[in-house]
Each structure stands twice: as structure tokens, then as C-alpha cells.
Simulated assay, not measured.
Amino acid sequence: MLILAALALAQSAPQPGPMQTFGDWVVACDNGKRCEMTSLLPEADIGAEGDWQISVVREAGPTGLWSVELMGEVKPGIRLSIAGSDAASASAVWRGTEFSGGQALAIVRAMVNGRIAQLHDARGTLIGRVSLTGSSASLRFIDAQQGRAETVTAAVATGARPASAVPAAPAIPVIASVRPRGAAVLSPATLKQLWAESDCGENYDGDGLPSVERHALGDGATLALVPCGAGAYNYSSVPYVVRGGKAVLAEFDSPPGWGGDDGPPMLVNAGFDPTTGELGSYAKGRGIGDCGSSETYVWDGKRFRLVGARAMGECRGSTNWLTVWRARAVPR
């Protein structure tokens, strides 16, 4: 019954979770109420590529735990220290994996009133700083999104209500997917149709038409990705599904980040995994990849269904895009 209920839930259009910027931090929660916040470069340093980042995750539900991760040229022995008031201090040594348990909790508690996070190497030399401006507001956002306000589990909006008052983590959708099988078939006539209907050939006048990428979807269906122009670091393609020699635009339960109501769905830097059947789109806002959006889909026999979405709306040095949607694909 639980699987049937989750499958029914998956029929509705995906509603990605919220994302918010507070000072030098971005925070987002997905549809399962798992929340993550990540540091940005301060405004004065926009345009530079960040060397160090901190990511903080809290799982949903009454017993949801914290984890803290360092990102950059991280090596075992690096010490993370939170500086601020006497009550806002914590220190932990990186052992090669995320901080969890009591260490993560101490770091988070110190961040509430902390001013700066400092990183020292094993010899005690200062090697990096991460601004904590906005981290407290981000933690409060997580409290609100997960229903923790005024409970003993809150990071900022603490209160006397017990952990049992925190809502359980919502179930994520389960999607029955078709695993790829068979052969990818595109006849010369179908290729001609794809180029004519997509109008993408106009982007290659005089240069010759590039190859159309094709993948078997199963049950006689072929995914055709028609190249449709390129920039410095983004390569666009229009997806079609071909059956019995007839090509139609691919359908999505949640459209890719590019394209619009007046045009066809547009994948960016598309990739297809023939083993899992996952179709990905990854649109970068800048060449260094510190902002943009990405979507991952699976084929259910009729349309592509969203199983993962990540985003970063601030072009401020963070290559840690935050998850705003999750679903679980079950091969059928």
C-alpha cells in the first residue's frame, strides 16, 4: 500500500522546494524537507573563484541529524574553527569525511552567533576564511521549513516543545521507470523530419549539420537529441521520442530549465545513461559552474519524469548546487 500511495503521489507535477539567499549563504529544502545551506563568496569578492566552502545539511523529521562538510583543497588534519562571542566557538579537525554527530551539532550551535569560520592546516597556519554572515538566518529558515520552531530540536528558534512535535519527513515520490533496451533507430526520413520541425538546422548554416544523438528507451522507442546551438559552455538540444518512424517532441512532467511556453523543451549539456536510463540537463550560468540548474529524468513509457533537481541562483563562487527535488525510480 505504501508503494501504491507513493506512485499515486508521483502523478502530480513536481513542486521543487524553496531556496533563499541570506547574506553570504544560500539555503534550500527539497520536497522531502531535507535542507542544505552552503557558503558563498562575500559580495566584494564576486568574480573570483572560491577556494573554500562549508556545506551544512539537516535531515528532516524529529530525529533529523546534522552534517557539516568542508569543500576545497581539503586534507586530513585541517582544523575548522568558529569565531564569535564566547558562546559562539567550536573547533573540529577534518579526518577526511564529513563532520557528524556531536561535532556537527557543536559547529552549528556556534554558527548561530559566529562571525567567521577559520581554517588552519596541521601546522596551525591560517589557510582560509569563510564568512558566516547570513548563516544564522539560514539556520532559522531550516527550523521553519522543517517545522522545528519553538521545539528543543531547533537551531535558532528554540523552545520547550518536544522533538515529537516536529513533523515526520514527507515521503518522496516513487516513479515506475522503463530501463533502456532494444536498438536506437532513426531512418534518414526521420532525421530529415527532426531537422525540419525543430528549426535547429538554422544554427549550422554553411557548417554542415552535426550528428543527432540517439538512445534506445525500450518498447520500440528511441530518444533523439537534436543539436540546437551552443555557447561558450552550454550546448543545447531538443529532445524527441521516435516510434515506428514517427517523431514527437518529448514530454516532461517538469520542463527542463531552458525553453519556455512558446518553444520546445530544451536540454542543456544533455547526457543519457544507458544503464540507468537517466536523462540529465546541466545548464551553467558561468563557465566556472558556480551557478545554474540541473535536472535528472527517467522514462516511464510515456514521458520523462523528474527524479532530481539541483540549483544555485547566486553566481558567487559556490559549485555546490543545492537539491530542491528528489524522487525514487523503480524499474518495472
Results as ranks from 00 to 15, higher is better:
D290I: 07
Y240S: 07
F252R: 01
M266Y: 13
Y240L: 11
D261P: 04
A250K: 00
V298S: 01
G257W: 01
P274S: 11
I288D: 11
R310T: 03
S293C: 10
E251D: 09
L279N: 00
C291A: 11
V268I: 13
A311N: 13
I288P: 02
V242C: 12
F252D: 00
G277K: 04
F272Y: 14
P255V: 06
V238K: 03
A250M: 07
G287Q: 10
F272T: 06
S281V: 02
T296P: 04
R286F: 06
E295S: 07
I288A: 08
P256Y: 00
K246L: 10
S236A: 14
G289N: 10
Y240C: 05
V307S: 01
T296F: 09
V238W: 03
S294K: 02
G287Y: 05
G257Y: 02
G308M: 11
L267W: 03
E278G: 07
A283Y: 03
G263C: 09
K284F: 11
L249F: 15
G260W: 08
G260Y: 09
I288C: 06
D262K: 14
L306C: 10
K302V: 07
A309K: 12
R303M: 11
G287F: 05
E251A: 14
R305A: 00
G245S: 13
P256T: 02
A247W: 05
S254T: 05
V307H: 01
C291P: 06
D261E: 15
V242A: 09
V307L: 01
P274A: 09
G285R: 01
P239H: 15
G263A: 13
A247M: 15
S294E: 05
R303L: 08
